[in-house]
């Protein structure tokens, strides 16, 4: 009797586990499906933008080759390099601005601290692209909308507002005890040294998070790039290039290459994430005893 009951509990658990795993498998499939579909389309040999079968009838690498060789109309390699330069520099600047502002607001007490935080909160409620035409005219007035300066203008656009989005990093810095800072200062550290030698190493997860978001922002942005690049095709970023591939004149020829481009642009982000994710775990583990 007793054994039977035990057995049935075990059976019930197995049954539940099976059900849960089936559900998870279905959800995982639904989630992965679009990604898988884009990857398969990027290897599809049939032309055109419409497919009647889920699996391509034939596979090819031509879509990728076309992206890098057929550059007279849509110069993908150039766009890729443009975007990479812009994203790397904006990422560095944004990370620096954002972490510095967060550190100041977390560790220092000054008169404008509260007003600044309130102002940032209110400004943060408005979407960034609301200001894009104004930003364009300001950049034009300074003379940054011509030639290679467009890259610089875009870097400014993407990193300029960084100090306003300090909330998450500041919240994280707040959890590091101030006692650690005091101990460092007693040992002769300056504020800058506390920031670089104490706070940042203890806050790896948030640094990584900041770097990732700061990189992805400019990497995928379309609106600002479109408004500022205008007719300067040599300054286009990948987002504009991919969008153009889907216009009615190009879609029939470029659709599969569009998918190939979509796969390619995910690579730098994936590398960055894989390289950085091991730091997600650490943080303040073992910093303060007792």
């Amino acid at each position: 009797m007793k054994e039977k009951k035990l057995k049935s509990a075990k059976a019930a658990r197995t049954r539940n586990n099976i059900l849960i795993h089936i559900l998870l498998a279905v959800l995982a499939f639904i989630w992965v499906f679009p990604v898988l579909w884009v990857i398969m389309t990027s290897f599809r040999a049939e032309k055109g933008s419409y497919i009647s079968t889920f699996f391509p009838k034939a596979y090819t690498l031509d879509n990728y080759i076309k992206l890098f060789t057929d550059t007279t109309i849509l110069n993908f390699p150039k766009m890729f390099v443009n975007t990479l330069i812009i994203a790397i520099f904006s990422c560095l600047l944004t990370t620096f601005f954002q972490l510095s502002a967060s550190f100041c607001l977390s560790r220092m007490r000054f008169k404008m601290r509260k007003p600044y935080m309130n102002m940032a909160m209110i400004l943060g409620l408005f979407p960034g692209f609301m200001s894009m035409v104004a930003v364009y005219f300001i950049l034009k007035a300074v003379g940054l909308t011509e030639g290679n300066l467009i890259r610089f203008a875009l870097i400014l656009c993407y990193s300029g507002g960084a100090a306003l989005s300090f909330q998450i990093a500041k919240g994280f810095f707040d959890t590091t005890p101030y006692a650690i800072d005091e101990a460092a200062m007693l040992d002769g550290c300056t504020r800058w040294q506390v920031f670089t030698k104490i706070t940042l190493p203890l806050s790896k997860p948030i640094v990584i998070y900041t770097v990732l978001t700061a990189f992805i922002g400019p990497w995928v942005d379309f609106i600002f790039a479109k408004v500022i690049c205008r007719a300067n095709a040599d300054q286009y970023t990948v987002a504009i290039g991919l969008w153009r591939m889907l216009e009615k004149e190009y879609i029939d020829n470029w659709y599969t290459s569009f998918a190939a481009g979509a796969v390619l642009i995910s690579i730098p982000i994936a590398i960055l994430f894989l390289k950085l994710q091991k730091y997600y775990v650490n943080g303040t583990a073992g910093a303060v005893k007792g």
Binding site: E46, Y50, Y255
Partner: peptide
């Protein structure tokens, strides 16, 4: 819709489509 006409023309299941000169080369 979504290029179905052109795909049909390609595999022979459709015999006429409506479009403009930009699709003429294909």
């Amino acid at each position: 819709a979504d290029g179905a006409g052109m795909a049909g023309l390609r595999d022979g299941s459709i015999h006429a489509i409506f479009t403009g000169s930009w699709d003429a080369p294909s």
